[in-house]
Design a protein around this nucleic acid. Structure first.
Lengths: 220, 220
DNA sequence: GCGAAACTTGCACGCTGTGCAACAAAGGGG
DNA sequence: CCCCTTTGTTGCACAGCGTGCAAGTTTCGC
């Protein structure tokens, strides 16, 4: 099982405090968004709940919405990390697909669904999330460049990664809107969607009715 | 040639004034961004230059960055409009490709390049532009739904449109960074990029070296 | 013209984001 | 253990943002 806390090497007080504070702020922001709704609270409220000053909040995040995107960043960072550990001689798309599939097994997946649904009703949060995906795109392009060498142009790389992320985003959004308030982190539905949509991307979009995508409820 | 002012039907003073004001504000914002740099000016300055009050500015836009995205919105709206006028029995991807190719012939294309370059150094503007593409995505999905009927699932539609827009975005970004301060709206380079990248999308990403994409400067 | 509807403007108010300087906590010798 | 440096926290101040409101002004339909 995947975990974000596998670095158990000795860590100074300084470093640990910063991680704790960051986490406390992010949790406070998420709790508030959950209870009163996204965009319906102030930075002061987050800071108070996290037990820090207003000023300290802004030492960690640029805005209230940014504090809500650390989970999205975490998801994408994890996907990149998983991708990096896969065998380099595997076909590219297989690596990409299994990296995302693996990543859906992370903890707290239902929170991601919630965040997607929040973004659907809060423009500012949506922008923050889009920016988060955009930043991940840059990192992934970097990771791919070192794998593909100079055999691929910037335009090719950016298009490829953009498409992969668009499809993943679409799969997650679809999953999030179909799975309201699922308390049990059911990643199976999400996995199926990501697999379907990335496979389709690999093989081309030419025919709308291909594979398991065209007609949603026609089994086989 | 394409134009955004082909509606010459009788228009009341009210409507015309609003259009003029909106345009004045957007132009003022763009001029300012161009001269002092994006993010280096206030809403008051935009309002003053546009000859309206601060309050009126906020009646038209939510933020300074929003005033800079009307051109992006215009580009995408135009693409949708062009797409809608194409024959419905043409293959889907051909319609999509020629819609975007046609749209690159619009006026003021070099400004779009400038805006892309501005967004590269201004996070807030980048977010606004990402949001603009996102909103267009919703509209395009809507347009496609009425064309494809109920034969395609939401997930399929969102993935398809997301990929098309990602590729177009990548093409424009690539073009913008390769074409700094081109005063002559040279859309040919952009057309070639969009054609290459959307064609690749149609046929699948399986092989990195396929077509004219893999090795940038190896003719044929 | 004249009244209704729509638009502009100034004002007020709370919130945002950041520079700055004082304070506190952690780390590293001697 | 103390002192000094480094690093993080906090309060303060201040310019700017975004919006509700009410009073003007312009446009429209009759």
């Amino acid at each position: 099982m995947l975990s974000t806390t596998d670095n158990v090497e000795p860590m100074g007080r300084r470093e640990q405090n910063k991680i704790d504070t960051r986490r406390a702020i992010a949790d406070a922001a998420f709790d508030l968004a959950r209870s009163v709704g996204p965009g319906a609270f102030t930075v002061d409220q987050i800071a108070e709940r996290a037990g820090v000053s207003r000023r300290t909040f802004f030492n960690y995040f640029h805005s209230a919405e940014d504090a809500l995107t650390v989970r999205v960043d975490g998801f994408l960072d994890l996907a990149i990390e998983v991708f990096g550990k896969l065998p380099q001689d595997e076909p590219l798309f297989d690596s990409i697909i299994s990296a995302f599939i693996e990543t859906t097994r992370m903890e707290g997946l239902s929170q991601h669904g919630e965040l997607f649904r929040m973004a659907a009703v809060n423009p500012e949060l949506l922008r923050a999330q889009l920016h988060s995906w955009e930043r991940a795109e840059v990192r992934i392009v970097e990771a791919l460049r070192s794998r593909l060498g100079s055999g691929a142009s910037d335009l090719y790389l950016n298009s490829l990664v953009g498409c992969v992320l668009s499809c993943t985003k679409a799969a997650m959004r679809d999953w999030a809107s179909d799975t309201p308030t699922s308390g049990d982190d059911s990643g199976a539905d999400l996995e199926a969607r990501i697999l379907a949509v990335l496979t389709m991307l690999r093989d081309g979009f030419a025919d709308p009715g291909v594979g398991s995508m065209g007609r949603p409820r026609s089994s086989s």
